[in-house]
Amino acid sequence: MNLSLLWIPVTLAAAAAQTGRNATQRRLTEQIGTVGATQVRFLYGFPFALLALAGVRLVSGEGVPAPNATFLLYVLGGAATQILATALMLSAMRERAFSVVTAYTKTEPVQVALFGLVLLGDPLTPPVALAILVATAGVVLMSVKPGTSLTSAGVRPVAAGVAAGAFFALAAIGFRGAILSLPEGSFVIRATTTLAWGLGLQTAILLVWLGLFDRRALLASFAAWRPSLGAGFLGALASQFWFIGFALTTAANVRTLALVEVLMAQAVSHRFMAQTTTRRELVGMALILGGVAFLLLSQH
């Protein structure tokens, strides 16, 4: 069976699940604060990751790959940087529109490509590099509002969004490195094992942090368990697909195609938050679609 293009539908599924999770977390941020909402995706996602791992083992008959030192280093790096990225993204969403902040974080693919080349030796061909630049230009265009000065009160959410993109890039490289470092098993069992380890580490880190420094947020996340459970499920589902994508192709390919999430976020803003789409944003969308299309055409 030819799996060379399986990463495409897998990534699209991940982007759809992540859009739903981001919208759910944004509402939770208003109820329980940024740190509490950040913790929710990991604490409530971890049980679903364990269920996924048990299901994959049952269906495939494979054992869980044993971790090694390289795996643990990569997965811990991915776990820590993803926590920081999520917290920065949710903080920015408290001050700017959902679709705009999502756009800022999606400056990530350029950094993913560079980090992947340097840290993992992932190839970066000229057509793929061009596709990344075109799609990222579309994201930047969408995120710039006519007549808005970035030297005004909008600097902080912009900086937080771009920094979140950088940490998301490092997280993607960390998790792909962890998946590749496992010596045995199919791509599905290696991806799911990495997901379980990643969410387990993230849950432990945040439980300790909140227990020491923000018990109110921790208790609030337990009280808001119903919406938190939905965010955790969508987060685990999205991550499962992301990790399968990372197991199949470079993180740069996955995260560039994932820019379609910006278009999904725009649809969410338009439908549920009564936000209109400007001409500039439409041009940005066209660039994103053009870059993604060029990326797909460059695949062999």
Rank of each mutant, 00 (worst) to 15 (best):
G154N: 14
A247K: 02
T24I: 10
A80C: 09
L257R: 01
A286Q: 11
L3G: 09
G174T: 06
V158R: 07
T102D: 11
T70G: 01
Y44D: 14
L206F: 06
A191E: 14
A137W: 13
T19P: 02
A13E: 09
P183M: 10
V188L: 15
L201T: 03
V158Y: 15
L51K: 00
L263M: 09
A252W: 03
L170N: 05
G63Y: 02
K106I: 01
N253F: 05
L210K: 01
R216W: 09
F241D: 11
R176P: 15
P9W: 04
A54R: 00
S4Y: 04
F294R: 01
L72D: 08
A286P: 14
G154Y: 15
L133C: 13
L5V: 05
V134W: 12
S269V: 05
V140L: 14
A274L: 08
L180P: 12
R190V: 10
T70E: 13
S181G: 10
A191W: 14
A131P: 15
P227D: 12
V162K: 02
Q111H: 06
A16S: 07
L141M: 15
K106S: 01
G36K: 04
G121C: 13
A97S: 10
L259K: 00
G121S: 12
A37R: 01
L120E: 15
L218A: 14
T34A: 07
T86K: 00
A16Y: 08
A16L: 13
G63E: 13
V140A: 09
A191G: 10
T148P: 02
A153K: 09
W197G: 03
F71D: 07
N68E: 10
V100I: 14
A164M: 10
L72F: 02
S239T: 12
A129E: 15
R41E: 12
Q111R: 00
A220G: 07
E62R: 01
V262M: 09
A274W: 05
L212K: 00
L210M: 14
T125W: 13
P146D: 13
T278H: 06
W242T: 00
M285Q: 11
L84W: 05
A23Q: 02
N2H: 07
T102F: 04
L114V: 15
A217G: 12
A231G: 14
F46N: 06
Y104S: 04
Q39F: 09
S269P: 02
L124G: 11
F272I: 01
L289N: 03
G291T: 00
T148S: 12
M93Q: 13
I205L: 15
T136M: 13
T276Y: 01
T29G: 02
A97Q: 11
G45A: 06
A129C: 08
G63R: 02
A252H: 04
W225K: 02
L120A: 11
S186I: 15
R176Q: 15
R26K: 08
G165N: 12
P227N: 11
L50D: 10
V292H: 00
A265E: 03
A66N: 04
N2M: 06
A191L: 14
S91I: 04
E261D: 12
L248C: 08
S152A: 14
T151S: 15
V10T: 13
G165V: 10
